[in-house]
């Protein structure tokens, strides 16, 4: 009987370890998503809306997955430094200036970027802090 109890405890803990053992990237993604959401609310939501729907022709929606994908390397720079050029999103042109957010640290930019590119119907996966940091150093 005692043997049985010990064995079952052992098996249970092995199963628990396996279940909780997600890979590091999934955990990072979850962290970035939850922090990114807070930053989004504080800095982006005013103009881009709670569900990334944008605001008329003043602020573009963040739901154009094709735009986000083709401009992936530029996104970090846009978030940090703003944008003054005309952007074509969902076949509509947007000419209003986007303000920069120089107060955001590289890690904040990475987190909010991961949040945007994995919310509102987008699913582009994880981008690490290192990658974003490199992108930010090469902003035009």
């Amino acid at each position: 009987m005692r043997k049985f109890i010990i064995h079952s405890i052992l098996i249970c803990s092995v199963i628990a370890i396996i279940i909780s053992c997600q890979n590091q990237e999934t955990i990072d993604l979850q962290n970035y998503m939850s922090n990114g959401k807070d930053i989004y609310k504080a800095k982006c939501q005013n103009c881009h809306g709670e569900n990334g729907e944008g605001l008329g022709q003043l602020a573009p929606p963040l739901t154009d997955s094709v735009f986000l994908k083709t401009n992936k390397a530029r996104l970090a720079c846009i978030i940090k430094n703003g944008a003054s050029e005309t952007l074509v999103i969902h076949d509509k042109t947007y000419q209003e200036k986007m303000p920069g957010f120089p107060e955001l640290a590289d890690i904040d930019v990475a987190q909010v970027m991961v949040y945007v590119t994995n919310s509102f119907g987008n699913k582009q996966g994880f981008v690490s802090y290192d990658q974003v940091s490199t992108q930010l150093q090469n902003c035009k």
Binding site: Q45, N46, C47, G49, L55, L58
Partner: peptide
Amino acid sequence: CTTICPTMHR
């Protein structure tokens, strides 16, 4: 205005 106005007018 990039702070409260867009939300107000939305």
